[in-house]
């Protein structure tokens, strides 16, 4: 087959899809994407919802976004709490992507699907409990998550082991979210996705 033909075929699909989803294409979704996303708009423009990345994932971490996601329905996404990305060394999902919606990752530290953010009010490490499950499970331990040792107020024998996210290094794989040992009143760690970053100006 020729590359030209593929691109032509894709273009036809995309044009058709755009027609159907004029409303939904403006990035209202904030889904967590697989490794290799280069920005939500870029991703949405290229993803043809073929499901190949979903099939390629050996950990069944990827699933097609559900009906509630409008234009993004059918695109691959990750429910980190359910099953996070394992950052496979060979990125089978990226390799399977026929359109380059997922691309340009070589090292496990390359993906930038988002970054983790901790809710200090709910995280038990901030209360002085020895937990740090997120830190120990982090595939980029001591890089994406480090421990910040802080003295406890009014307690001269204990230290808080504060997991601290390095936004620039965090890949947004979500393993910390999956494994977080707290879920009441809610899971205190979440991934700020690329879509959210873009919408909120990178914050």
């Amino acid at each position: 087959m020729s590359a030209g033909k593929v691109i032509a075929g894709l273009a036809a699909v995309l044009v058709a899809a755009e027609g159907a989803f004029a409303v939904a294409a403006n990035g209202s979704s904030k889904l967590l994407r697989p490794p290799g996303i280069q920005g939500e708009a870029d991703f949405m423009a290229r993803c043809i919802k073929c499901g190949k990345c979903i099939e390629a994932c050996p950990y069944a971490s990827l699933h097609a976004a559900g009906p509630a996601e409008g234009a993004a329905a059918g695109t691959p996404c990750i429910d980190a709490r359910e099953q996070a990305c394992r950052l496979c060394k060979d990125f089978p999902c990226v390799a399977a992507c026929p359109t380059g919606a997922l691309r340009d990752v070589a090292e496990r530290s390359d993906p930038k699907a988002g970054y983790a953010r901790i809710d200090e009010e709910v995280c038990i490490a901030y209360q002085g409990y020895r937990c740090e499950v997120c830190y120990r499970i982090c595939p980029l331990i001591d890089q994406a998550i480090t421990l910040d040792f802080q003295a406890m107020e009014n307690d001269d024998i204990h230290t808080k082991f504060i997991p601290t996210i390095n936004k620039d290094v965090c890949t947004g794989c979500g393993l910390c979210v999956e494994r977080c040992a707290v879920d009441e009143p809610y899971v205190p760690i979440r991934i700020v996705t690329r879509a959210e970053q873009e919408r909120d100006g990178g914050r």
Binding site: A20, F21, V23, A24, S28, S29, K49, G51, A64, G66, P67, A68, E69, G70, A71, A73, G74
Partner: peptide, 16 residues
């Protein structure tokens, strides 16, 4: 099934 899901979503038209 993915195709059906997507079309159903599109038909519902909700962006919840």
């Amino acid at each position: 099934s993915a195709a059906i899901a997507m079309a159903t979503a599109a038909a519902a038209g909700s962006v919840a």
